[in-house]
Design a protein around this nucleic acid. Structure first.
Lengths: 129, 129
DNA sequence: ATGATAATGATAATGGTTATCATTCTCCGC
DNA sequence: GCGGAGAATGATAACCATTATCATTATCAT
């Protein structure tokens, strides 16, 4: 049985209090800065356990995994390839069409991930300056 | 200037002759088996160079990158989380809606990746057996 | 041929993540 | 309250895909 220990509580609170997409390193550092330092292995295990329980959710980026609050409506991500900024968007029709596409192939969907890469408004401006 | 050397030609031919999604290790092994053995670092660089030239394309999975032919219409991927089987699908409406969503946020799209995870027909059968 | 530029390949290094293992915590039944 | 089973913790080693290094070799234009 999975336990919601003090460490995991701290991780969960940190993520729930924010609107960011955290990687494990950032979580560890932030907790350490707050005087609640937790071993990096425990952070990784805690994040995995919390995600398993549906208490947080994640996106897998090229290099690393990032976690965010789960108490939001489902959404996908737009990532700026220059500054790394992450925006969220959701689109009911896209979701519905994904379901249909999977059904066509006889698949039973368990999850999906849509990431759009591009240049955010700021970096576009920067580039054209 | 990028050169299409014998090694890169071999990698490109291998991928173009197939319909699979290759990782670097598989490419190296397959070429070695065919008597055309290439250093693993060269395989990685070759794959990156070929992708840069638009001669092959790739999808980034959780753990590794996989390459496939580029001479196919754009498509997304369905991945079986049990056996790893990869199916392709494409949906013009989904593409169009993605563009619209990005524009709404002021992003200039440079790429995107949609992966749907699920159980393929065979593994569904297996599971319910 | 002769440089200049790029590619090769063996190997070391990187970096995010997971495994190991001894120790500590938690919680249940007695 | 006590004992013990099952988890969790944390320091650290191991993993593994990928990238960097660097000496050597190939390629191409003049």
């Amino acid at each position: 049985m999975v336990k919601l220990t003090a460490q995991r509580q701290a991780i969960l609170d940190l993520i729930n209090r924010s609107n960011r997409h955290w990687d494990a390193e950032e979580v560890a550092r932030s907790l350490a800065d707050a005087g609640q330092s937790i071993g990096i292995a425990t952070v990784y295990r805690g994040l995995a356990a919390l995600e398993n329980e549906g208490l947080i959710s994640s996106i897998q980026l090229t290099d690393k995994k990032r976690y965010e609050r789960a108490d939001k409506a489902h959404h996908d991500h737009l990532i700026c390839t220059i500054c790394g900024r992450i925006e969220e968007f959701s689109h009911a029709t896209i979701e519905a069409l994904q379901l249909a596409a999977a059904r066509d192939k006889g698949f039973e969907i368990t999850g999906h991930q849509l990431v759009i890469f591009g240049l955010c408004p700021d970096c576009r401006k920067e580039k054209n300056a």
